[in-house]
Amino acid sequence: KVAEEHPDEIWCDSLKLGNLQLVSKLKNPSDSCSVDVSTVWWEGTGSKESRIITACEFTVSLWKSLDNWQWRKVYTWHFTEIPVLQIIPLWDTCNLVCVALGHLEIREIRLLFCSDDDECLKQSLVKSGNIKAVLGLRHKRLVCSNGTLHDHQVDLMTFSGSGRSKEKRTLMSPEETILAFAEVQGMQDALLGTTLMSNIVIWNLKTGQLLKKMQIGNSYQASICHKAYSDMGLLFVVLSHPHGKEIESMGSPIFRLIAINPKTALSVDVRPYSLPQGHTGRFLDGEVKDNLAAAVLTSGTIAVWDLFLGHCTALLLPNSDGNWSFVKWSGTDSCLLAGQKNGSVFVYSY
């Protein structure tokens, strides 16, 4: 009877934490502001294991797993001049990770690794300039777009196993600012991007060709692409709209799934992913992995959606330590890594 009278209230209560279970907490004692978290495969004394990597303003730290979901900080890379903005994981690599450094925009991308000979921490400059978007891809590759309208360039870099050398090739530029890149699940040679002028662009990574530039309408202005899936001749793309206006009839969609026919460049809305009633906020940071999307909202809450089910499956409200400021899916298992500016990272199993 209560559920009938107050369906939204009951649903929200059951949503809090939802499918998430807290398994571990890392506390970075550094005084500086935490900015990002990710996971990386790391090979130490003969065994390959998943480790957590955290970024503060001027340090990046690697955490080794101990027994009972405890973590110990084992390495820290230090940066002196430009602050760290984000971690860029290279998903199927071992002992390699990239970071983006800059103030408001990315100025440098650096590769972090550990020397084989003396196990010393190393870092090397991969790219510098006015970098607009970057993404780590499978097979030790990284794509980034840089420059202004007149000298705009899209570079694809492939690293060697040790990270010491790299091979660079240029992808054809769409001649406008790229806001984000996304890999296409089910089509490993395809790369997708969203642009400032509401276009979705597709490249062939093998040939470097720009295959299509598709207008997706004004309601999608400044969209960020997170993930794309190729199925039955269509591209299904998950977008977020950090600067989007609220559409009353749809509530406040944080993510949106659209279907595009790449042959005709026609697209349709498939599904909005909105917050449950009683919750508000705009997209601040987020990530999509397989069928799960997670976002930190301006309200300081983290929300999780199952893209197949179509609704929010978990809410992490701000805790006594404060608001959430970044969220990532673990690349190596089904864990959610939720971070706060004060250096706390909470690991939730999903």
Partner: peptide
Amino acid sequence: CSESDLGPISLNWFEELTSEAPP
């Protein structure tokens, strides 16, 4: 999603667009 909304669908769109795009 139907062909009336999205136009003719091709399962080989990636190969077809690659052969049509400038090298």
